[in-house]
Design a protein around this nucleic acid. Structure first.
Lengths: 246, 246
DNA sequence: CCATCGTTCTTGTCATGACAAGTGTGGACC
DNA sequence: GGTCCACACTTGTCATGACAAGAACGATGG
């Protein structure tokens, strides 16, 4: 493991364990350099990483301070549609319409950093809330992960819990949000007109080492779900999924 | 502006303008170093920034390639369209189509926690990037703030800088994101068909004391702008298992 | 024609050194 | 006691140099 990752991991551990409490000053760059007998480059890389996660603050001239000791408030709820809906007191449902192993096309290969034609496992799932179609999920897993799905009833339990139990690590996710018009498949399965606006979230989840694990194109009915972000000057923004009672 | 930001801005401009199309290789680090007469540090910083936005791909040994040409707005920078676009190396523009003081309707009153009929100041602005219509902004300010806009040329400088200079504090904001179909006004000003999907951001900004200051309904062309966020969770070391070894 | 193996190119990591820009503090001065 | 300012300290930026790890590509042998 590279030095900067070791430094970052050590700082995360010290912050998570409470050795460094919220509000405490983080050791300065020069102190960390001395402590690790390293130059500033890896130290700064580690601090940049923690800063991107919202764990520490600081800036030019301003020594870094601990902002949060926990990571991942919204992460679990965001990955798992079922637990999110259940937590709101609604009844989640899902129909897996297709599970297939096929070669990756150009887009998928690019997103998952694979070569075009590498086998991947694709899932097409219709998600329901209280029996009403709410979201259409087109998920692609890299093959070593996707193979775990063939001996799993995708409509019974939580898919991510199943994967997690088998050691699949999905630590970071990048979400990209935009709007698209419903195509024929969307129209049929979400019960909207062709061309109707849909809220799309494209998600790429990776493991700790940064290697992509899944890529998903999720399309929500905008009259049922929206996203929200709370954005204060200091804190790190967090993405949430909102249910819209209509 | 620091060198690495200039490099990043230039690359974003070249990608956005189509000079570098999707799939094209991005100039290598050494080429960029030569082109800018710079060392690798700022060049790498620029490329890291573009990579975090999902604009380019690549990795160890793999030369970077253009992944997307659309701009992505990270949630950290939600306020100020102008400075966001400018920081990305594009030329922001704006046309204020209407500024009016009128009584708040039910929706506005609810969002701003006012009584219906209380006078508010509404702004309708078309936002452009590099001269192309990109976003349509329907903003409503509470009257004490909105009155500051009547003696300000909304198309000249940054509106929020103007308000900030007059002591208006907008510390926290709550954003809600969904998709809507373009109405006639949207269609005309954003140059899309009626019914085309638009990415909508509804924003309520408040001061430190929690009192709402502005409410805005911003509609973006999804082919030009998307939103992005990265979130991460703490790893569970106990669950780590190297499934990739297979 | 295809698989294989090096060479070469690219990116990742890190050390060292230097200066700029911003913050905070303590002391001098009023 | 309060104000202002110089100075120490922090982080941001950048140059230079070096090596390692991985990927792309062409040559080579089957």
């Amino acid at each position: 493991m590279p030095l900067h990752e070791r430094i970052a991991a050590d700082l995360r551990r010290r912050i998570g364990s409470g050795e460094l409490a919220v509000g405490d000053p983080v050791p300065s760059e020069s102190q960390l350099c001395a402590q690790w007998n390293a130059s500033r480059a890896p130290v700064r890389q580690a601090l940049t990483s923690l800063r991107a996660e919202g764990m520490i603050g600081g800036g030019r001239g301003k020594p870094a301070v601990v902002r949060r000791h926990t990571l991942s408030q919204p992460f679990e709820t965001f990955l798992s549609f079922s637990s999110w809906a259940a937590g709101l007191g609604h009844v989640p449902g899902q129909r897996t319409l297709e599970i297939a192993r096929r070669p990756a096309d150009a887009d998928i290969a690019d997103a998952l950093q694979l070569d075009e034609g590498t086998p991947v496992v694709q899932l097409l799932r219709q998600r329901l809330i209280d029996g009403r179609p709410t979201m259409l999920e087109r998920t692609t897993f890299v093959e070593p992960v996707g193979r775990l799905l063939f001996d799993f009833d995708c409509d019974s339990g939580s898919l991510y819990a199943h994967l997690g139990a088998h050691g699949v690590d999905m630590t970071v996710a990048r979400h990209q949000i935009d709007a698209v018009a419903a195509d024929e498949t969307d129209s049929e399965l979400l019960e909207v007109a062709v061309g109707a606006p849909l809220l799309r979230e494209r998600r790429r989840a990776s493991g700790m080492d940064g290697r992509p694990v899944e890529y998903s194109d999720d399309r929500y009915r905008p009259d049922m779900v929206s996203f929200s972000i709370e954005n204060s000057q200091q804190a790190h923004p967090a993405l949430l999924r909102d249910w819209r009672a209509s």
